[in-house]
Design a protein around this nucleic acid. Sequence first.
DNA 1: AACATGGCTGCTT
DNA 2: CAAGCAGCCATGT
Length: 115
Amino acid sequence: MIERSTADKSPASDPRREMLWQVLAAIPPGRVSSYGRLAQLAGLGRGARLVGRWLGQLPDDTSLPWHRVLNSQGQLSLPADSPSGQEQYQRLLAEGVIIRNRRVNMARYGWPDSL
DNA sequence: AACATGGCTGCTT
DNA sequence: CAAGCAGCCATGT
């Protein structure tokens, strides 16, 4: 029998997100990763955009390092003028990540290194 | 169900 | 290096 429990659609109980949070939490301070990589690592395949969407839905008080996620080119994907964009910039800066022209050296800060 | 929208990517101009 | 284009995939109308 295939039954639908009343609470199997709760985003918070979505196992895919759980995976993502886990991978996300694994990014060391001072390092960065990309939406695509995280998607891959979290078993979301090509769900890069999905990762972005979900990150955007994280609560403000989250302890997850959402700011360590950039696009595949190592650039901050958030609009520079948005609050979140500034936040991300500042946080990375605070972790010692060198950002030049809204972009970081992925070869150096990219995580995981083995690829 | 069709269509538009994303915190994307990779390939080609 | 910037811009265009075509895949990708969950969500929202």
